[in-house]
Nucleic acid binder design. Structure first.
Lengths: 182, 182
DNA sequence: GTCTATACGAAGATAGAC
DNA sequence: GTCTATCTTCGTATAGAC
């Protein structure tokens, strides 16, 4: 159910993700929703946000296995490209969705903040260890994550991966520069 | 009503923006909703997205009045900082909201795509005219818009303007580099 | 144009049996 | 744990009077 909710969140947003659809997609039994999630929808969304945050963090760790930081950025971008393409630009990031409609589910928004911070930390450490100027590693990481998340949104609106490709190209230049400056 | 809807969209998202609240905030008469918007909510959201897109484009034009492209980026960032601060990190970008919940309102998503393209065009032209390497102006513009939109989201999730500041700093470096390389 | 009243559906949540 | 049934609320949309 948590996974299904995350998938629905990234497609439709939090508010448009209903229990009915989560049940339908996950095949979970109707009657046990409030047994597993006594906190109701807010709890489900919060846990799904955490799940998605961890999932994407794992992808980031995998991308950072390369010793080349540019290859890492490229691998991270590639995973988003795949999501966009396979969903016909209908799916984005569940953590972003949790942020945007977070006033009604403060727990989910907080979980989104934690997820972003975690990704940033992973990426900043990775960049610093792989030759990026240490004092710039953190802001580079923030830029990378923000730019990719933003690019995914623009790509969905325009139903084209071109914005993501342009952003990816620029990010590669920036990372290369930051390493050369060291 | 269009303006009120845009304000609600940027705070709560499309799905959570109800006619009742639009009426309440705008002071418009209940009975005339479907007189002015025969297409119902979808039409209202679509027109609000266009309105917001034009509004932000106008801000971008104003920011581009400076002859210094870095000052332009700084001015654009400043307007987002103000929105975040004044809303206590409760408000983001209505055009982003229209994109994320766009499956149910394809017209609004399309309007969002047009808005992003327009901003990108304005910024790319401005950067090219102000000394940015011509062949990079467009991808620089995409990066700038995507990164700022992404930073606004991260800032909301973390209830802090720090991510926006870090992204702004990096963007200034990138733009400065692109001009120096010319 | 704007009003009131209302139809209609969907969603979250609860109760109590099994 | 899971089921069925139901409650309540809320949202969009429509109808028809003024």
């Amino acid at each position: 159910m948590i996974q299904s909710a995350a998938l629905l969140m990234r497609e439709r947003g939090v508010e448009a993700t209903s229990f009915s659809e989560v049940i339908e997609r996950s095949g979970a039994p109707r009657g046990s929703i409030y047994h597993h999630f006594p906190g109701g929808k807010a709890q489900l969304i919060e846990e799904s946000t955490r799940y998605a945050g961890d999932f994407i963090a794992a992808g980031l760790v995998a991308a950072l296995e390369s010793s080349d930081p540019i290859a890492s950025v490229r691998a991270f971008v590639a995973s988003w490209r795949t999501i966009l393409r396979e969903s016909h630009y209908g799916a984005g990031c569940p953590v972003v969705a949790a942020t945007l409609e977070g006033d009604r589910t403060p727990g989910a928004r907080a979980a989104a903040g934690v997820a972003f911070a975690r990704w940033e930390e992973l990426l900043a450490d990775g960049l610093a260890q792989r030759g990026a100027a240490p004092d710039r590693a953190r802001s580079l990481a923030t830029l990378t994550i923000a730019a990719i998340e933003g690019a995914v949104i623009v790509a969905r609106a325009q139903r084209s991966s071109a914005p993501l490709e342009r952003v990816a190209g620029e990010l590669e230049l920036v990372v290369a520069d930051a390493i050369a400056l060291r």
